[in-house]
């Protein structure tokens, strides 16, 4: 009982610590680490309650649950990091486009806005592409702001 409580309690502390860090910190990587620590805490509670002393064999069911949980956590981590990388790309290309459109409007009048016509995702003429459009993959007209002056 006491070892279970000792270890399970540590798991709860880790959960609370991760939760605190998640709420307090701004940077995404720190939030992600915080979630993983909180998750580690929850898994630790499962492992602790599976432990039944050094004589009895441990309960295998929580062990299997934790294994599933670890794989789920790493999957989510991978997806979060990929989304984050894509967000950085989108932000940088948006910043690039901003800089360019500023210099463009200094030399000439703003280009006319795109006419509101129905467009399908395939509809994309090569001449419409600007370097900023080329950066993120799979761009469709809907992904661009229709009000973005270009083309």
């Amino acid at each position: 009982m006491s070892a279970q409580f000792l270890y399970g309690g540590a798991g709860i502390l880790l959960f609370a610590l991760g939760l605190w860090s998640l709420l307090v910190h701004e940077a995404l990587l720190r939030k992600l680490i915080a979630i993983n620590i909180a998750g580690g805490g929850v898994f630790h509670v499962f492992i602790a309650i599976a432990y039944r002393g050094d004589t009895a064999p441990p309960d295998p069911v929580p062990h299997a649950l934790v294994l599933t949980g670890i794989v789920v956590a790493v999957s989510a981590t991978a997806l979060v990091l990929a989304l984050h990388r894509r967000l950085e790309q989108a932000e940088e290309s948006a910043a690039d486009a901003e800089g360019r459109s500023e210099s463009a409007s200094a030399s000439s009048a703003a280009p006319p806005p795109r006419t509101p016509t129905e467009r399908t995702p395939t509809e994309r003429t090569p001449t419409e592409l600007t370097p900023a459009d080329l950066t993120p993959a799979d761009l469709t007209p809907e992904t661009l702001h229709p009000e973005t002056p270009h083309g």
Partner: peptide
């Protein structure tokens, strides 16, 4: 996040967390 738009990715990143 399928549109690849910045707002969509930011929103879904938060949704995921």
């Amino acid at each position: 996040a399928l549109t690849g738009k910045r707002e969509a990715i930011a929103a879904n990143l938060r949704y995921l967390l």
